[in-house]
């Protein structure tokens, strides 16, 4: 039990005064000293070590009254009040006042049932306002997220640019995009063309034509297995960076992605690095005069199988 304010203080040789103040230790949260008002002879600061017992309204000390009187007088200016200092959780630790300060509960507030009812009603009203908002807000934010796929053929250049077999040649092209209400804009993109020898073609197509389907499963285009031009999407299937055709010390001429160092050969096969699948082939057609057209597709990076997103 903590000594209370106003408790009588009794020494070995009789009562000497009452507890006028209590001093806390800010670190341990314990009462460290009592300040005893010495029946008109000033105040003395008594350490808790000198306290023998603490009862409801009496504090008994081990010392005699003359010993207590010899203690130095209490210095108020060495202390601040509880209101002027931040000590976490002090209210939970201190029980030294001889009583409580109370405020009456208003008459209308004494019906406990109604309080609970109103608390629940508050939550219900909150839900009534909030829940109907969830769907519209989500739809509002999701508006541009799932655009339909576009299977237009884009002209990207002429095969005259490709001089050597089994070498990656970059074709830059512009693609128009229309976002939301904005006017149509052009963005620059690129694909890599390879004029493949039959061995590379065999590696790519493995003797079968390659069919491209849209989301509904309808066939969009078929790349014939003996058509020598391959078009690779410019997006690295590892994490979506842009790869390049580079000379590698050991592997020779390869596609190299400078981001995470995935390396692919001319057929798009992964030679080294973290990529989970070969480069993505695009639908391609080459006209008699060498004009190249592709369908601009992009696939989700980082997955073993292809998921088309553009």
């Amino acid at each position: 039990m903590q000594p209370q304010l106003k408790s009588k203080v009794r020494c070995t040789d009789g009562e000497v005064g009452e507890v006028s103040k209590v001093i806390m230790d800010p670190l341990s949260h314990d009462v460290s000293h009592l300040v005893v008002s010495m029946n008109g002879e000033g105040e003395r600061q008594v350490p808790m070590g000198a306290v023998l017992t603490v009862a409801n309204d009496v504090v008994e000390l081990r010392s005699s009254s003359s010993e207590i009187l010899r203690l130095p007088p209490f210095m108020r200016e060495d202390y601040v009040t509880l209101h002027e200092v931040e000590i976490p959780g002090l209210e939970r630790h201190i029980h030294v006042t001889p009583g409580e300060v109370l405020v009456p509960f208003p008459e209308l507030e004494r019906n406990v049932k109604r309080r609970i009812f109103f608390a629940k009603l508050t939550y219900a009203t909150g839900l009534f306002i909030g829940l109907p908002l969830v769907f519209p807000v989500m739809k509002f934010l999701m508006k541009p997220m799932y655009a339909s796929l576009d299977n237009r053929w884009l002209k990207i250049g002429n095969t005259g640019k490709v001089k050597t077999d089994d070498v990656g040649v970059q074709f830059q092209y512009k693609r128009t995009v229309k976002e939301a209400y904005l006017p149509e804009a052009e963005i620059e993109k690129n694909v890599w063309l390879v004029k493949a020898t039959s061995s590379v073609l065999e590696k790519v197509y493995q003797g079968k034509d390659m069919e491209f389907r849209d989301a509904t499963g309808r066939a969009v285009w078929t790349n014939k297995k003996d058509m020598p031009y391959l078009a690779f999407s410019g997006k690295c299937p590892h994490l979506g960076c842009a790869f390049k055709w580079r000379k590698h010390k050991v592997l020779g001429q390869v596609f190299l992605c400078p981001c995470h160092l995935s390396i692919y050969d001319a057929s798009g096969k992964v030679l080294d690095g973290p990529a989970p699948r070969p480069l993505d082939l695009l639908p391609i057609q080459v006209s008699a005069n060498g004009d190249v057209q592709i369908i601009d597709m992009e696939f989700k990076a980082g997955t073993k199988s292809q998921t088309r997103i553009v």
Partner: peptide, 28 residues
Amino acid sequence: VGVEIMDKMPVLGDFMARFLKGGATPGQ
């Protein structure tokens, strides 16, 4: 690249990536 990484989250990844990009590819 950052959004592609987010895309790798199980279940929510694709949604989160599209949500952040406001579409399939970065733009306005």
